[in-house]
Design a protein around this nucleic acid. Structure first.
Length: 99
RNA sequence: GAAGCCAGACAGACAGUCGCUGUGCGAAAUGCACAGAGGAAAGUCCGGGCUCCAAAGAGCAAGGUGCCAGGUAACGCCUGGGAGGUGUGAGCCUACGGAAAGUGCCGCAGAGAGUAGACCGCCAAAGCGUUUUACGCCGGUAAGGGUGAAAGGGUGCGGUAAGAGCGCACCGCGCCAAUGGCAACAUUGGUGGCAGGGUAAACCCCACCUGGAGCAAGACCAAAUAGGAGAGCAAUCUCGUGGCUCGCGAGGCUCUCGGGUAGGUUGCUUGAGGUGCACGGUGACGUGCAUCCUAGAUGAAUGACUGUCCACGACAGAACCCGGCUUAUGGCUGGCUUCCUCU
RNA sequence: UGGGCCGUCGCCAAGCGGUAAGGCACUGGGUUUUGAUCCCAGCAUUCGCAGGUUCGAAUCCUGCCGGCCCAG
């Protein structure tokens, strides 16, 4: 829902309301999946702060579909920011991202 | 073989790689080691610990519990027993004190719904009258019919004008005694007279229990700021303290205007703890010894990928901590009951 | 964490121990040349679910389910 250029490395924010995903088990599951995918793909992501927010149907989604939609959103983000962000800026930093 | 009842344990396993949270080691590292959700962590329905209010007091009010005995820190929980109900049975269920302290309610129907009553009936003995083997009046009665969820014990015999606990027998009920049992209660005997239906998850009475708030409790450190202005009340007052009164403690308190802060540490996990053995107890449970340390986050941690195997993984995520209850849920094991078939 | 409220026809709802009002909507009929209005009639087999108390429960009690609100 948000992507803002702030720090020289990508950061992840999660906004998971109890209204969208009522049960704690499902909420934790989706958060784990998003965090894991961010961790695996952070070196290829643009250096922006992003906030991920689930929609109402997310609680019934399978793990593979959540992963696929996360990657699709990242591709959209890259295309939108492709003109603004320099490629060299991203590769020069290898600090651990703050999740 | 089918259906059912009860009890129990388990909650995918192993290996590898990369991650997350905590603790320890280390000067530090892009390190190393160890540990890391549940039987219900859930609902928040009860009980307790802990913390503050007065190391919690009195009375009223309010609320809860309600056969007996035991267990427990405590309970509305558990165990054992009694009584009642239910099921063919294994079993299961039960707010299970008091209706003779008082009050209320019992629609419709029905004569009458609670110090009873007379619609259809039955009888008319005694008394009176007449048209005298009869009828009427004065009356008697509640057996039978009818209404209702419920009509002031039930069945039978006697009795009577007809009837009626009016009398008797048995059953039921109340009271007393004995026996067994700690008790609830059971059994037996005697006695009374059949009197006043139901409802207390209606008010209520009796007995017992409950002070209030909650870890965002509370404690500490640091930062910031204005010990501001105005009004009101004030020891017969105000606040702490909650529904009220008392008591106790403190001495200022309340409102308005304007302004400031809300960051961190702790509480935080060793506990009515777990496991094993022995002993006591029918059992819940208790005692002793040995042994183990087993999440502690604070935008909130348990995952992803790969491989092998199987029954192909249900319900579901700790937030101060424990004991229960309730609800959700997967397959497995053992015991028992009923029925069917075969030998 | 603590506390409170609600669930009744498709919708809005009254009833709080005595056998489920009313309005809108819907269906049928009438009035009208036709439509609206108007008139008449119909429309709750589980009062969220499951037990219990009572002769009798939407109502009382207990346990669940769902929804909403308040305080910190």
């Amino acid at each position: 829902m948000l992507a803002r250029i702030n720090k020289p490395f990508p950061r992840l924010g999660l906004a998971f309301s109890k209204k969208k995903i009522p049960r704690a088990v499902d909420r934790n599951r989706v958060k784990r999946i998003v965090r894991e995918q961010f961790r695996l793909t952070q070196t290829t992501l643009p250096s922006v702060d992003m906030i991920v927010m689930p929609k109402a149907g997310t609680r019934n989604a399978k793990n593979t579909s959540i992963i696929a939609s996360f990657h699709a959103l990242c591709e959209q983000l890259k295309q939108k920011l492709g003109n603004q962000v320099e490629q060299s800026q991203r590769s020069s930093f290898t600090l651990p991202p703050q999740i």
